[in-house]
Every structure is written in C-alpha cells, then in structure tokens.
Design a protein around this nucleic acid. Structure first.
Lengths: 196, 196
DNA sequence: CGGGGATTTGAGCGCATTCAAACGCAGTGG
DNA sequence: CCACTGCGTTTGAATGCGCTCAAATCCCCG
C-alpha cells in the first residue's frame, strides 16, 4: 500500500486482521471533540486491527507512513483456524496480551516522564523495533512528523523539536530532519527510566 | 480476599485468570527506577491477569482495595475449554480486545487533558462502572487514596485534592473524604471531552 | 524556481509541581 | 479517658516545565 493510504478507519467494520511485513504506520484515534491523537507507530512484525474484535468495528485509523506491505487474514477464517490449533491459539493470545502490556508501558511513560524522558523513550523504542536491539550509530528515518510524534507523546510539536535539538547538542543522538542516529543509548535509557 | 491482599504480583508465574465478582482493586506496575504507577482500578465484571499471557509471567500487581471475591480459572483448563467452543473463544477475544481499547482511551486522557478533565473523566468512569450509567446524586465510596488516583491520572496527590475541591465548589460533585456523588454528569462529561 | 508544509528557535505565560504547614481521623498504649 | 503517633487529606506560596504565539528558515514536490 502507498504512503498516506489507510488500511482501515475508525468506525469501519472489522473485516480482517493484518500482519505488517514492511513499512511504518501510524495508528490514531479522533475523539468526539474533533481532536486527533496518535496512539502507536506500528511496524514490521506487528498485528493491526486487534482493536476491532471487541465491537466488530475498528476504534482507530491505521495509515501507512510510507509504502508498505501487509498480510491480511480474514477474521472469520482466522478464528476458524485458531479453533483447531491450540498452539496457534496460544500464540495469538500472547500477541494480544503483549499488546495490552505495551500500552501500559506507554501509560507509565505519559504519566511519569518529562519531555526529555518521553522523547528518549520514543527514540529507543523506535530504534529497537526498526533496527533490532539498539546498535549505536545506526541511522534510521523518521517517517512521521514532529506533530505526530508530539501527539503520540502528549507533547506539542515545538517541544519535540526543542528536545531533539537539545539531545543532539548533548551528543546523545544525531539528527538531520528525518534522519536520526542513536549515539549514546545508555544515557538515553537512563533518561527514559528516570522519574519526572 | 481481604483488603490489601495481592491477587498476584509483578513477576509471578501465570497460574490462572480471574473474574471479579465483587470489590474494587488496583492494578499497578513498578519500573526499574523503583517508582510505582497505578494502571487501572478494576472492579466487578472485569478480568484480571490477562497481562500475564504474553510472557507466562505477570507484568503487574493486582491488590484488593477492600474485601473482594474473584472467580479463578486455571489458565490451561481455560484454554482447553476455549479450544472446543467457538462462541466462548470469540467472547474471550472480545474481552482482550476491549482491554486494548480501554487502555488507548486512557492514553488519550493522559495525552490531551488538563488536571480538571482527567479528574472528571476518572469520576465518570468510576461511577459508570460501579453504579451503572451515571445516575446523578448516587453516592459511591472511593476505596483508593488521593495518591493512587494521582498515580493513575499522571498527577500529584495535591493536584487531585485541589481539583476535587474545585469541582465541589462549582457544584459538579459532592465529596466528603472518601464518599463521592456525581451531581452534574453532563458538565463533567464536557470537561472530560474538551481539549487541554 | 516558486509555493506550502515541516521544522527550528525565541519570548512570555499559565498550569501543575514542589515545598511546606496544618488538620482530621484511626489505632495504640499509658 | 486522653495523649501520642502515623497516615491521609487539604490548603497556601513559589518555582519551573511545557504551552502558546510568532517569525524565520528549510526542504520537499510540483
């Protein structure tokens, strides 16, 4: 699918679950007041659409941030397969459970960290998921805007920009607009784990 | 189980899933830095222990805030039952999915609302879950401390206290230490949906 | 090469936090 | 019965972090 294209939209009926083969996505939600918040940046290996099982309708949008490939699994067929395969069923439950845990980690982040800690955690998380366990100096491309990052972290786009600049001036990471490299993962990790 | 007793603790091996029959609980997580954050206040009807499926170990503590009753389901037996019953399996998936969605709603809350909006949302959520759809004037008992509420909402205990006092002085709710009643649900709802 | 969105940077402000003190209440022991 | 202690709550004052408003610059893309 192409950059900017939606895999599904909030309110769509649940048709299939998807597994990401390549590409970065954003998953978001707009509330009654009309504002929009990014709730995740899914990427390779993750499942999309799990939010729709609860009510048969999707609660979030999922949009591709670059050209991407996903494998669709028709929901009914998938359930039928699970029902005959205890191992696959267990794997699937583990996936959903981990999704719950992942969100709770994010809650902790939003509830306790300063802007610096949030951005550090975001950078580490993204580099882990895109490059495997943070090899220092490895460069990656941020497909999302500062605004989207801010929405995800509960910050304004200006604060995100300022914080990235600050972390760069301290030598913890290199950043050239969308291109980013982690230089001092341990220091970032310390920020991400420290209290507000 | 008695007030203050733990159903399970972070790191415990997953033995069973539990359904709450009565009582209020808190679910929390302590991070490497040693700080503790409340991530939910489960109550009647909710499932406990779903976080443990992903890794076979629980990622959170669950502690009773008052004497409570839960129904345990041995995990292996439960999985076996699911495997032969497509309807039950679907119900269970819906439960897990809703858990995911619930957390994302909380993310939105922490990411976008002011202290006032957060407290309003908390009060409404709690009264909905304890009393059914907010009947005005109905009084309920907060089993958790201001500190626990603040931890859950990403605020300090002082801010929670101040905000509750303010909402009371505006006539939106009545509060006498642990006893609380919703007086103007629509106004609270507006606060909880308004932007920061 | 021009246009528009994204990004960076600055200045001032406001909300929530931090620090601090006083009060209420339950449990305990003299 | 009352002082004493500990914990939870309330309230006040001052600080500071992140937001708002604003302007300049960069970069992608047509």
């Amino acid at each position: 699918m192409a950059r900017g294209e939606a895999l599904f939209r909030q309110g769509d009926r649940l048709a299939a679950l998807y597994q990401v083969r390549s590409g970065q996505f954003k998953s978001g939600h707009s509330d009654p007041g009309g504002r929009y918040q990014v709730t995740a940046f899914p990427t390779v290996g993750e499942w999309l659409g799990l939010d729709g099982i609860g009510t048969d309708r999707h609660c979030f949008d999922v949009v591709a941030l670059e050209s991407a490939v996903v494998v669709p699994w028709c929901y009914d067929q998938w359930m039928h397969r699970l029902n005959g395969d205890a191992t696959l069923q267990h794997d699937f439950h583990q996936t959903m459970s981990r999704e719950i845990v992942r969100n709770q980690a994010l809650l902790l982040l939003l509830g306790t960290l300063t802007a610096e800690g949030r951005v550090a955690a975001f950078v580490l998380d993204l580099s882990d998921r895109l490059c495997g366990s943070g090899q220092p100096g490895l460069s990656l491309v941020l497909r999302m805007t500062r605004n989207e990052i801010g929405s995800y972290l509960g910050l304004t786009l200006e604060t995100v920009s300022r914080t990235l600049s600050k972390l760069q001036s301290e030598g913890l990471l290199g950043i050239d607009c969308r291109r980013l490299q982690v230089l001092d993962a341990p220091a970032l990790r310390r920020m991400a784990h420290r209290a507000a």
